[in-house]
Design a protein around this nucleic acid. Structure first.
Lengths: 401, 401
DNA sequence: GTAACTTATTAAATATATTATAAAGATGGT
DNA sequence: ACCATCTTTATAATATATTTAATAAGTTAC
């Protein structure tokens, strides 16, 4: 690809994440001069890839002409997987849902058919959407596990003998495919569209059955040497003898996660704690955790105390992170976000107790604002973040010729 | 500075760290085409900043013409401080000592005169060296404490009301000055000239009275939002009740550092352990620690067991680091390096016990090879890493005209 | 001796920035 | 309402920066 095409691609990327930008904005974002940027913009206008978006308000001078992507020009398939379920969504270039996302049951553990199921589901989903496959620029997938993004290998699930996930899905769906760890995808969503936007050093914490972590360093996602960075859940932090899901003992996960929340709640109820939490027989962990968090939001003291304990332990882990990375912001999200601001006090308390003040003073903490679709939105962002070559103008060129 | 001058500066930087390079090497290092790079090289030759270094061996084609810096063209002042002593050295552009480094006693704690003492010492040192100040391109300083590199502030020591260290020293020594945390400087030395050279993700561990850490991520030094990243010594890792030097409890430093080594040795001897370690009355910590490490190298089982315990605890901390950063290499250095390979086994053991295998498998561990001058060499590298504008050709221009 | 390869040089073409100027609007005063 | 002045934005002409392509030259390995 020529340099000029690369810059155009960069402009498209910027417009995807910012939606509306002026020539001056774009010039500083792609770090090229205004006249040169203008030339690139005009080329993109000619190719019918972007559109004139009218004049924006003045900030003390001539009103800037603004530009944006044509939303229906191309689409993106976003896939958010967890160990049991997978969501598939379709988004346009304004990050809007084109049709309602689809949920499929897809257990990952010991499931040799998982990829077949996935690619069938994606192909069906596209067919039902009515969108032509040629208009889809790619598929982004966030999934749990140890993932080598470049090689397309998940060392925990979805193993394919003599091949890899990316090659397989490219072949079976005919779509450029990008995969990443679910916590990285979540962090990417925060970096491009959420609380970490335009921030440099941010820790994005995914409170779920484990504690996921996406590291944003110097304004970029950090993946580590093999893509395994951010294994926060399994740092050896406690001297307990609890066996963790990873096989080791004393991991953060054994004292701070939604699993622990459910366990503590069950235990407390059995011991006769007075609480409004009610578990049905055989209730699954997801609804149990939701019940605890719901009770806590209603003011249930027992539930709040459980969240306090777990939050405090997560905060202990975050103290280590603050010492090592000196971040400006910590963003909390994931399933646990249902308990909202109740996390803030115990985590902050732990940080106060375990951090050197000069370090913790300049680190702020926020709850995610992206909401439940974070996984899908991040997966779509993953495509735009990595896409290198797409024939952006094909459709309009065809209709024009 | 014009773009072209910037590129020339970059060429000088590359030649400083690599000593001898061909046009092709430089072209790929500065990421400009070969013809353009050649033009820049010729300009530098004309200005008598670099010199033709003859032909290098062929690797299957025409022998490359190589170039190098003229070592005596410019010099660098390097300063390595610890809490009690400060070393000052003078280096040429081939990283060679111009005269023996000087040691001065300079306690940092509660010493309002420290900066005056330092600048006097530096000025004296330069006078005695016989090098003209105009030939010195700058001064690099590594020092303990919480340091904001850009603002020139050390929040732990050397506080100056209404000014900062850089401004003060620039004024009193007339030299462009750069400061950084001692562990960062050590990591820089490893990155540019040592075991981390051309590596991407490396943890450089400084085993001393605390455990310092310099993080190299994506091939660059990582400093965090305010320059405080890498506070490994004070991560809350132990459930002990030992008060740390930072005021908190349970820091890594309280169970893994040379201070702990000395304490354990003293305790053991008092309890009648059989060992060849002998402490004189009132022996200071530095020689005591050296004695323990010396005994261990001789095979003293008690000394070795102490190193094992401390190494194991450091390894526990490193396990966390590996989970979070997924580095390809860990480099061990600092005062503790006197015990050499004896650290490797206990640290590796802790990593084996506390790391998920897939993470630890691809992380190797090495001892530093830079030696005792690491602090000074790194401080000199700090100058070359950051210098932006120097009149490189002045002297020769004068002699030519 | 020759194929394959690395390195060096030159001319030509392309990429990109700077400067000057114009246009459009904001602000504050009368 | 009208004007003077300061900003920001847009565009055209010009100058500079940088790469590409073609070619030549020097080496190695078979």
């Amino acid at each position: 690809m020529s340099k000029e095409e690369l810059y155009k691609q960069n402009i498209i990327k910027q417009l995807y994440f910012e939606r509306v930008l002026s020539a001056t904005d774009l010039s500083s974002l792609i770090k090229k001069s205004i006249p040169y940027t203008t030339r690139l913009i005009n080329a993109l206008l000619d190719e019918d890839v972007i559109t004139d978006n009218g004049l924006a308000d003045s900030s003390g001078g001539r009103k800037p002409q603004t530009y944006s992507l044509i939303p229906g020009l191309k689409y993106i398939i976003a896939v958010a997987m967890d160990q049991f379920n997978t969501q598939v969504g379709l988004y346009d270039l304004h990050q809007q849902e084109v049709c309602p996302p689809k949920n499929i049951e897809l257990p990952l553990a010991n499931n040799t058919d998982a990829l077949i199921t996935l690619s069938n589901a994606v192909n069906d989903f596209i067919s039902n959407s009515g969108i032509n496959k040629s208009q889809i620029i790619g598929m982004g997938i966030g999934m749990p596990g140890f993932i080598n993004t470049k090689k397309g290998i998940n060392y925990s699930f979805l193993h394919i003998p003599k091949s890899n996930i990316i090659s397989y899905l490219k072949k079976s769906t005919q779509l450029p495919t990008f995969i990443a760890n679910d916590s990285s995808v979540f962090a990417l969503a925060e970096l491009r569209l959420g609380a970490a936007k335009n921030k440099k050093n941010v820790m994005v914490v995914n409170i779920g059955w484990g504690i996921g972590l996406g590291l944003i360093l110097k304004g970029q996602l950090y993946n580590g040497e093999n893509g395994f960075a951010g294994e926060f859940s399994h740092i050896p932090l406690f001297d307990n003898r609890r066996i963790c899901s990873c096989g080791k003992m004393g991991c953060l996960e054994t004292e701070g996660s939604l699993n622990v929340m459910v366990t503590k709640a069950r235990q407390g109820i059995q011991e006769g704690q007075s609480t409004i939490i009610k578990f049905n027989e055989g209730e699954d962990n997801l609804s149990a955790a939701s019940a605890v968090m719901h009770a806590a939001s209603k003011g249930d003291r027992f539930a709040i105390s459980i969240i306090y304990e777990i939050g405090y332990n997560i905060g202990r882990g975050l103290s280590i992170l603050i010492h090592l990375m000196n971040p400006q912001l910590i963003v909390l999200g994931g399933l646990g976000i249902k308990a909202g601001h109740l996390w803030l006090a115990p985590i902050q308390q732990a940080i106060n107790e375990h951090c050197i003040p000069i370090l913790s003073e300049d680190t702020s903490m926020k709850l995610t604002t992206i909401g439940e679709q974070a996984g899908l939105i991040g997966a779509a962002a993953l495509v735009m973040d990595n896409i290198e070559s797409t024939n952006w103008s094909s459709i309009h060129t065809l209709s024009n010729s």
